[in-house]
Simulated scan of single mutants.
Amino acid sequence: MSRALAWGAALVILLGAAVLAGGAAPSSSVMAPALGPRDPELARCQALGEAGGQDPRCRAAWALARARFFGGAAS
Rank of each mutant, 00 (worst) to 15 (best):
32 A>G: 05
30 V>H: 11
26 P>F: 13
32 A>R: 12
30 V>W: 10
40 P>W: 01
61 A>K: 00
31 M>N: 03
37 P>L: 02
22 G>R: 14
38 R>Q: 10
16 G>V: 08
44 R>F: 08
35 L>Y: 07
12 V>L: 15
45 C>A: 08
61 A>H: 00
23 G>V: 09
65 A>G: 02
75 S>A: 14
40 P>I: 04
6 A>T: 07
75 S>K: 11
32 A>Y: 05
6 A>W: 12
38 R>F: 01
46 Q>N: 12
55 D>Y: 02
59 R>E: 08
2 S>D: 10
35 L>G: 06
44 R>D: 09
74 A>F: 03
46 Q>H: 13
62 W>K: 04
11 L>Y: 03
38 R>K: 13
61 A>L: 00
20 L>T: 07
9 A>G: 10
1 M>F: 09
45 C>L: 02
71 G>D: 07
57 R>S: 13
42 L>N: 02
44 R>I: 04
36 G>E: 15
46 Q>S: 11
19 V>Y: 11
15 L>W: 06
25 A>W: 14
2 S>R: 15
40 P>S: 13
17 A>E: 03
27 S>K: 12
41 E>C: 00
6 A>Y: 11
75 S>W: 06
59 R>P: 00
28 S>W: 11
47 A>R: 10
59 R>I: 08
33 P>A: 15
75 S>H: 10
66 R>K: 15
38 R>N: 06
59 R>T: 07
68 R>Y: 04
27 S>D: 14
9 A>N: 06
56 P>F: 05
2 S>G: 09
46 Q>E: 15
67 A>E: 08
64 L>F: 01
40 P>V: 07
67 A>R: 07
37 P>E: 05
71 G>R: 04
30 V>L: 15
52 G>A: 15
13 I>R: 05
3 R>Y: 09
44 R>N: 12
59 R>D: 09
25 A>E: 14
26 P>C: 13
57 R>Y: 04
9 A>E: 04
10 A>M: 10
30 V>M: 12
37 P>D: 06
17 A>Q: 08
14 L>F: 11
71 G>Y: 05
36 G>W: 07
7 W>C: 10
53 G>V: 05
64 L>C: 02
38 R>G: 06
4 A>D: 09
70 F>G: 05
33 P>T: 14
21 A>Q: 07
45 C>I: 01
26 P>Y: 13
71 G>S: 06
18 A>S: 11
29 S>Y: 10
